[in-house]
Nucleic acid binder design. Structure first.
Lengths: 216, 216
DNA sequence: ATTTCAATCCCCCGTTTACGGGGTGATCGC
DNA sequence: GCGATCACCCCGTAAACGGGGGATTGAAAT
């Protein structure tokens, strides 16, 4: 069974070139080509396995189309973005919206047929410079996530207690868990409140989260 | 100026093949080949622009080497992983450790020279199936972050109140702010606790965060 | 059309807990 | 010695908690 491919591309030259690439590949079948978002929308109910999609279309951004396709659920065709836009925001928006691959148009040596086939079989063809954005973004997120506290340094004991409070422990329960007096728990709680500049449990938890003392 | 390339690969056949690919490319200069982590470590002080790195080495995982290279800071050579290991955990570990690209060995049609050059110029060559992992991971993170509630849908009023509680409001203060009776605040708070299955403010805040009801 | 339900609002009660202040002492590192 | 941490204690007020009661509205289900 051949994969049904739809090309959404407003530049006739590019569309034709991509079309040739698709038709040259066994396993791919070009079923339609359109140059507008509106035209693509009319094809949404057809059985399409792969959209090869330009982002800069005359009647809007291809990203809208990605969102619409993903919002429909159901068949979940693959979406391969083919764009001149290589800036980080556009790339991430497309990927997060649900693109399965992102190729820059300026690659002359690109074998569209092979890339399309890769996308169909679950791969994600990315131009190297695009991939660099994605990896950078991934690592930045990781780094952001693990950037510890900053402002108020809680003592180990206080952090320990904080974790218990986060799990809904009362002062008394925490006292049992830590095997110290409830009074001492109260004292530690006071210290925590003072350091976090709050005056009750709820706000303390919020600040703990925002300070990175507690993990999502 | 040619890019200095070091190959870290224990399989002599693969190493030789990769070496040919590198030498065939203008702009790349193969300066060393080693089959062990230990051998690679001895090269860390040399001026290397690109490591082409296997992960499964006899004396440990190449991921260790990535971490060591990145921990040194300074020159920051590029690192292109070339591995048979295509599982998600390995890929993500390598990428998060600081790999600039990840290619699977099973690709016969891979032009190592071109991929290496891409890596050197800031690109991130990823095999399509690898890229799929990365994109999936990226979207999953995004989805996790914005996945509303899940179990218990709080009413608008309750969410409104929750925000106040997160800012440290007492029931009484919240009553003033929302211009309703403190008793009603108490009722809403009870509802919130019931829906979030908690029994005090602190735990409620924690659950609210983990459910995405409150933003970091 | 009736019922059922969730959401909103209001009130009272009693018990438990939290909060904020006070004071004491031991240990450890600078 | 001094400051910070950790530990313990007591007190009183204030707040939170959990249970009960009831009312209204509007939407959804029967």
């Amino acid at each position: 069974m051949k994969g049904n491919v739809v090309i959404v591309e407003d530049d006739p030259l590019v569309a034709a070139h991509v079309g040739r690439g698709v038709e040259a590949h066994d396993g791919l079948s070009l079923v339609a080509t359109t140059g507008t978002l509106a035209g693509a929308r009319e094809l949404l109910d057809r059985k399409v396995d792969l959209f090869i999609l330009d982002l800069g279309l005359p009647d809007g951004s291809g990203i809208e189309l990605i969102e619409e396709i993903r919002a429909r659920g159901g068949l979940e065709p693959k979406i391969l973005v083919l764009s001149v836009l290589g800036d980080q925001d556009t790339v991430l928006a497309a990927v997060l919206a649900g693109a399965d691959g992102y190729l820059l148009k300026d690659i002359d040596s690109l074998d569209i047929g092979q890339q399309a086939a890769d996308a169909l079989t679950g791969g994600a063809p990315l131009s190297p410079s695009i991939a660099a954005y994605v990896l950078r973004h991934l690592r930045r997120q990781r780094d952001d996530a693990k950037s510890d506290d900053a402002d108020p340094p809680l003592s180990p004991r206080e952090i320990e207690l904080l974790q218990l409070l986060a799990r809904g422990y009362s002062n008394r329960q925490a006292a049992v868990a830590l095997e110290i007096s409830p009074h001492t728990i109260g004292d530690h709680v006071k210290s925590i409140y003072r350091k976090l500049r709050v005056s009750n449990r709820g706000e303390a938890m919020v600040r703990a989260f925002r300070s990175g003392l507690l993990r999502l």
